[in-house]
Amino acid sequence: MSYSLPSFLVVSSLLFCLGMYTVLTRRNAIGILMGIELVLNGAGLNFVAFSRFLEPSQTTNLLSGQVFTLFIIAVAAAEVAVALAIVLSLYSRMKTIDVEEFKQLQG
């Protein structure tokens, strides 16, 4: 079976929107982090899909979209590591991971 570009774009958009929804609504910091992963994966899928469907027949397939996705996965991994560390440290300080409580920057 062949998959057309729009079906990939729909999945990636769904992933992004779910992720976004998770980020905006979850009060748990870990949940937000997970949402962010979804958003990033949605974006990665988008890159890959465009890379596959816009340049397959061309002689100069540079795979730049796939490269970008690799970078995103790498950065996401690093980001999660840092973010989890932050969340842990926040938890040790505040005894909560509810982001509503983290408002020290309020003006």
Partner: peptide
């Protein structure tokens, strides 16, 4: 007045971004 925008809550900022 504007100060109130600075809630310090990350999600609020994201709302505005969206």
């Amino acid at each position: 007045a504007l100060r109130r925008l600075q809630t310090g809550r990350v999600q609020h900022y994201l709302y505005s971004v969206v």
